[in-house]
Design a protein around this nucleic acid. Sequence first.
DNA 1: ATTAGGTACCTTGCAATACAATATACCATG
DNA 2: CATGGTATATTGTATTGCAAGGTACCTAAT
Lengths: 107, 107
Amino acid sequence: MNIQFKKGVLELCVLSILEKKDCYGYELVNNISKSFSISEGTIYPLLSRLRKEGYVTTYLEESQEGPTRKYYVLTKTGRNILEDLKAEWYSFTKAVNQILKGSEAYE
Amino acid sequence: MNIQFKKGVLELCVLSILEKKDCYGYELVNNISKSFSISEGTIYPLLSRLRKEGYVTTYLEESQEGPTRKYYVLTKTGRNILEDLKAEWYSFTKAVNQILKGSEAYE
DNA sequence: ATTAGGTACCTTGCAATACAATATACCATG
DNA sequence: CATGGTATATTGTATTGCAAGGTACCTAAT
């Protein structure tokens, strides 16, 4: 898996998953890992950044299976950013796919 | 335009364009700029790297409109890399789109 | 009780890459 | 001869993903 493809896209994925339900870091790693490889050393700094930027807030909850979980919740700002990122992602991939296909076909 | 989305994808785009015809750096910048913003300071180091890795070779050709152009040609190795990158790109974007759509729909 | 393995958090140092800014130099037009 | 477009290239900075490591909780087997 090309590491570079992931740059910036991970943020989009995390926000998109949090849109559906609150998650803790370890859960996000396992969830996203089903789609493509991702490590904890990537997620935790990313989550800290998202919180610092006000895209998410957190709350703690105890677990019977291990240490306390820190759940992340999407804020209103985070929701807006997510919409922007999604739109950018779709238009970007469309542009790339046009280049890959020879770019004769412009709709 | 999210800078991070471009990471690594630019290499794919450049190789894909070179697959169709030989290009010089400045031409690639103008060509790709039609799809998304890209600067010269990004392309030239990238092209040097591609040459160092044996994905492209170069030849010089004079121009009436300005300084000598350095044309880049895809090698056999470059062609193979391009095929790999394309496949990775398609499978990666598919995975991301599944996450964005809620990932209930697995085909 | 001690060990092992799974769960869960976090930090540090490193690598890759895109960009702005800058530099050089050619050519044509005013 | 100055401006603007063409064309190449380098330097320093910022961002982000990862491997490796550390802390700590819980359960089950030894």
